[in-house]
Amino acid sequence: MKKICLSVVGMFLTFFAAFAQDSTAYKSRKLTFEEANLVSSYYHQDGNNSAVTGGVGTENLTDYSNTIDLKFVRWGANNVKHSFTLEAGIDHYTSASSDKIDPRTISSASSADTRIYPSLSWMAENNAKGTTFGAGVSFSSEFDYKSFGANVLFAKKTANRNGEFSVKLQAYLDQVTIIQPIELRSNQNINSHEDDYASQARNSFSGSFSYSQIINPNFQLALIADVVYQQGYLGLPFHRIYFNNGSEGVETLPGTRLKIPLGIRANYFLGDKVVLRSFYRYYHDDWGLSAHTAQLEAALKISPFFSFTPFYRYYNQQGTKYFAPINTHSVSEQFYTSNYDLSTLNSGFYGAGFRLTPEKGVLVIQHLSALEIRYGHYSRSNGLNSNILSLNLQVK
């Protein structure tokens, strides 16, 4: 997999170093290349509360991810800027817990999987009117999940251009493949092929609303509100439940869910070399889950071409009323899960990144305008730990 990541980086540099030479400074009415970004990341986690085995057992998982986005622009009538962004991503993971869906095999189909997720978006910015319109479509596919998405957005600046209101509407129409633990399948489905599995719908609809305001030259503030409604099969069919009477089943959750996150973001500029970024969010849903998130990040400009960014995020969650540990749920309950993602917990995520933007380009490649590397460590109160390392290359 490391060879794949390096090959993608090599092709990225070779192709776009040449392609970027066609970009021009004037406002061309032809579709021209503006920017490209490649992000590669490595993620690894471990823990002992796998929902696949009823809330106990290994959560060991490794994920390699590569995404690339290409941005093109064209200037239309009335000086309207049209931006088109094509993004393509591919993830490959190996999961010890998913391998327990069918422990008879050395490596079951879900022990490793690859996800692809292309998307296309368009945005039209009218600086004279201070308005922005946009739309996008997306698709995601992996072994047991398919997703189709669409979105539209609108933004409007205030008369003095110091404030902006935006709204984004999204819809995701998904299909969940019903793959149950091997011991709970009927005899005729024990050796089923992927094409033989049934599937059920999961639909998500959301509205995101924000208002940003420049308070003064050093202080910017944004208020954020989301409303998310989900319907359909909202659990996972291979999450086991071990009841208090010794029997076994799979998690069962309500067929609808309403989520309401509310947030505030504040950025403060301490001169030319330090930017403090802060974020707070309160979350609540009708499953009884509520949470608080607080994050602080400092961007330190060490030199005109080098910046260092440490960050810390704290998260506290009051779990859903449907969660209980292994051997605790009663068969008389209507809904039940032993997925610790839905339990009461707190977590911390900290790390740092650095960004290089040399005047002559990274590695003296003129159009390779930026290189950023970030590392983060995550730890949860129930023992789950993870590490993520990412690389971002930008061509202009």
Rank of each mutant, 00 (worst) to 15 (best):
K81W: 06
A109Q: 05
R104Q: 15
T114R: 02
D113C: 01
S121Q: 14
D102L: 03
I106R: 11
H82V: 12
H92E: 00
F72W: 05
S97D: 12
D91Y: 05
R74I: 01
I116A: 05
S97Q: 09
E125V: 15
I101D: 04
A128G: 10
A77Y: 14
A88K: 05
K100V: 07
D91P: 06
T85N: 07
S95E: 06
K71G: 08
I90L: 12
L120S: 08
A77G: 13
N126C: 04
L120K: 02
L70P: 08
K81L: 12
D102S: 04
P103L: 04
D91E: 15
I90M: 08
A96P: 01
D113H: 01
S97F: 01
W75K: 13
G76F: 15
N79T: 13
N126W: 00
N127I: 00
A124T: 05
G89I: 05
S119P: 11
S83E: 08
V73W: 01
N126A: 14
N127V: 02
L70G: 02
E87I: 12
P103E: 01
I116T: 02
S83L: 09
I106N: 02
K100Q: 15
R104D: 13
S83M: 08
T94S: 08
A77S: 15
W122G: 10
S107W: 00
L86T: 02
N127H: 04
L86K: 05
K100M: 15
S111Y: 04
R74V: 00
A96S: 11
S107K: 07
H82C: 11
D91L: 11
S83K: 14
D69P: 06
S98H: 12
R74M: 09
A96K: 09
F72S: 02
K100D: 00
A96F: 01
P103H: 00
I106K: 12
K81D: 07
W75P: 09
S119K: 05
A96G: 10
D91C: 08
S121M: 08
W75C: 01
G76C: 11
A124C: 04
F72I: 09
S107M: 14
L120D: 06
K81R: 14
S83C: 13
S98T: 04
Y93T: 07
A109M: 08
S111E: 00
Y117C: 05
D113I: 03
A112V: 08
W75Q: 02
V73L: 13
D102A: 01
V80F: 06
D91R: 11
I90F: 02
H92T: 03
W75Y: 15
A77D: 15
G76A: 07
I101C: 00
W122L: 06
H82Y: 11
A88M: 14
T85R: 14
D69I: 04
L86V: 10
A109T: 12
N127A: 14
T105N: 07
L70V: 11
P103F: 01
S121Y: 15
P103D: 09
D113L: 01
S108R: 10
H82A: 03
I90A: 13
S95L: 07
S119D: 13
L70S: 02
S108A: 11
T105H: 14
W75R: 09
G89D: 09
D99H: 03
D99T: 10
T114G: 06
D91A: 12
F72E: 03
S119A: 07
E125P: 12
